[in-house]
Simulated scan of single mutants.
Amino acid sequence: VVQAFFPGEEGGTALARIISGAAEPSGRLPVSIPRQVGGQPGTYLHSALGGHTDWSSVDPTPLFPFGHGLSWTSFTCSDLSVDPVAPTDGAVSVAVTVRNVGEVAGTEVVQLYLSDPEASVVRPLRWLAGFGRVELRPGEAARITFSVHADRTSFTGVDLRRRVESGVIGVAVGRSSGDLPLQGSFTLRGPVRHPAADRVLSVPVEIVPVP
């Protein structure tokens, strides 16, 4: 199945190249695809309650989750490393190793998600914080390191001011919002901080080949 959305006037050529194998499908879904005809096109940015089924007859589990996408080859992610502690105005490093375990070259999009179970307001179960796109030949591996500033955990509080709070932040890394085999966490310490409009929104990624 190829989801092309609105591919434009060169869409036919692009689809033909993908289906024939001349090009690699390496895109990822920017939405979740409902499992049932009556399912709602919900976002993956739901609270913990949003994943419950006791208040609805419709299973909210998507057929294809946000971030999903396949390739002509297979990849593994392993060796998660997370800095344990950072100040509320600092940053942490999150690193994983991705390897092409298939028989052809391919491109993987390693996705980093964060969660904040201790926030003073209800927050999404998880949100996409960054991603790293890497091309690997069969058997090749790379170490992907994300630099995550505390500003990426900020949210709007009950006083309508953006804030960074101390507490445990969950980390999950994988291939989509529904496929996150690597789990960890780090702790933010320090006073509540109110980042300004110039808050850090980017998550720089370093990719280094490994044996």
Rank of each mutant, 00 (worst) to 15 (best):
F75P: 00
F186N: 06
R162S: 10
G42M: 15
G21H: 09
S202D: 15
D54V: 12
H52G: 15
P87Q: 05
F6Y: 14
F131N: 07
P62T: 02
S78G: 10
S47W: 05
T153C: 10
T156G: 08
S57K: 14
L188R: 05
R162W: 06
G51I: 00
R133K: 05
L180W: 02
T187D: 02
A16F: 11
E165G: 11
V164I: 15
R143K: 11
A129S: 10
V208L: 15
S120E: 01
P117T: 08
S154E: 04
E118C: 05
A142R: 06
G106C: 10
D54I: 09
E10F: 13
G90A: 03
G132P: 03
I207G: 09
T97P: 12
G170E: 15
A141K: 04
P41T: 03
V92H: 01
G174R: 04
Q111R: 10
P34A: 09
T61I: 01
G51V: 02
C77A: 13
R175S: 12
T43R: 07
V92D: 06
G90R: 04
V205Q: 13
P117V: 14
F146C: 05
P204H: 03
V98A: 01
S177T: 07
T43Y: 03
L63N: 13
V173G: 07
V82Q: 04
E135V: 13
H149I: 02
C77L: 15
V85P: 11
R199W: 12
L160P: 00
A23L: 04
L188G: 02
W55E: 12
S185D: 14
G130H: 05
R161F: 14
D116A: 12
V109K: 15
E9P: 01
E135R: 11
G39M: 02
S56M: 05
P117L: 10
E135A: 14
V82L: 05
E206I: 05
G67Y: 00
D179V: 09
G167P: 14
V96P: 00
A196W: 09
Q3L: 15
P211S: 15
D151E: 11
G170V: 07
